[in-house]
Design a protein around this nucleic acid. Structure first.
Length: 279
DNA sequence: TCCCAGGCTCTCT
DNA sequence: AGAGAGCATGGG
């Protein structure tokens, strides 16, 4: 991958980025804190409030507040945006299966992001039996209420910032029955019972079981956290849409060619299913 | 008014 | 162990 990075004042320019579409990536239900802006996307990548857009094939990542360590920023964004993975090769591999190829052709520019662990854990607890617009609304309310203001945006709160928040206070953000589960997750993270480094060191099945110690976290939420924040690419989250896709598109099971990278394949399937399958 | 959403827990067989 | 109701909330 001959990708060159230019560092200007607060802005990174990744030259000649292929297989990357920002709308597909930010709209495919893996993240809830990016908004379409004029000719680009605005949101948080970890602690960095950013404006991201393409000019031709060059990807511009502008941090909206001053950045001291541009190399650190660049390293973080390569990881967050998953610029260090060869998606062309992955898609060639997946395309060995005809149905898989049609899903990829529907949204060929999807990338699986690498988001912060704590934020991903909480947002996917909120996702339970919920729809994407409302998840986004609740997540934004959490940030505005308890997060740090950076520029004119609010960062997602840290566990420390949530340490005194009660179940009742979470309920005020209209998250319903999920309030007690968010509370439990925060407490377990603060107590060190759920530890990011530990999760990331465990093999997939153990990591899934480990996350399910949190109340209200089952296999699907755990899988999303592992896939979207821990680079566990064999994780294959199953929601109602994926179950429809499995029944309608893959009645004899998933193809061999996605083995080990089921999670990335899952995103193409999920997006295709949402907009092309019957309920 | 009813159905549904990036599901899980609890209860009843 | 497997099936099924119930769950907070808001949009269609």
């Amino acid at each position: 991958m001959n990708m060159k990075v230019i560092k200007e004042k607060n802005t990174l320019i990744f030259e000649n980025v292929q297989d990357y579409d920002l709308p597909s990536t930010f709209n495919c239900g893996q993240c809830f804190r990016w908004d379409a802006a004029a000719d680009g996307w605005q949101g948080f990548a970890g602690i960095y409030p950013c404006f991201i857009h393409f000019i031709e094939n060059d990807l511009y990542v502008q941090c909206l507040v001053p950045v001291e360590d541009m190399s650190g920023f660049a390293d973080y964004m390569v990881h967050y945006l998953s610029l260090d993975m060869d998606y062309a090769a992955l898609k060639r591999r997946f395309s060995a299966d005809r149905v898989m190829k049609s899903a990829i052709d529907y949204a060929p520019g999807i990338r699986v992001l690498n988001q912060p662990f704590f934020e991903t854990l909480l947002t996917f607890i909120i996702s339970r039996n919920n729809n994407i617009p409302r998840i986004k609304k609740i997540v934004d309310a959490m940030a505005a209420t308890y997060g740090t203001k950076v520029g004119d945006m609010y960062a997602f709160p840290t566990a420390e910032q949530l340490k005194d928040v009660t179940v009742e206070q979470y309920s005020e953000l209209r998250m319903g029955f999920r309030a007690k589960y968010i509370f439990d997750a925060v407490q377990k993270v603060l107590a060190g019972e759920i530890d990011e480094t530990t999760v990331k060191s465990l093999p997939y099945a153990d990591a899934q079981k480990y996350l399910m110690k949190i109340k209200g976290v089952g296999p699907k939420v755990a899988d999303c956290v592992l896939l979207f924040s821990c680079r566990q690419y064999e994780s294959f989250p199953k929601d109602v849409w994926i179950n429809r896709a499995l029944a309608q598109m893959f009645p004899q099971g998933l193809p061999e060619c996605i083995k080990g990278m089921e999670g990335i394949a899952q995103q193409y399937i999920f997006q295709y299913a949402r907009f092309n399958l019957e309920k």
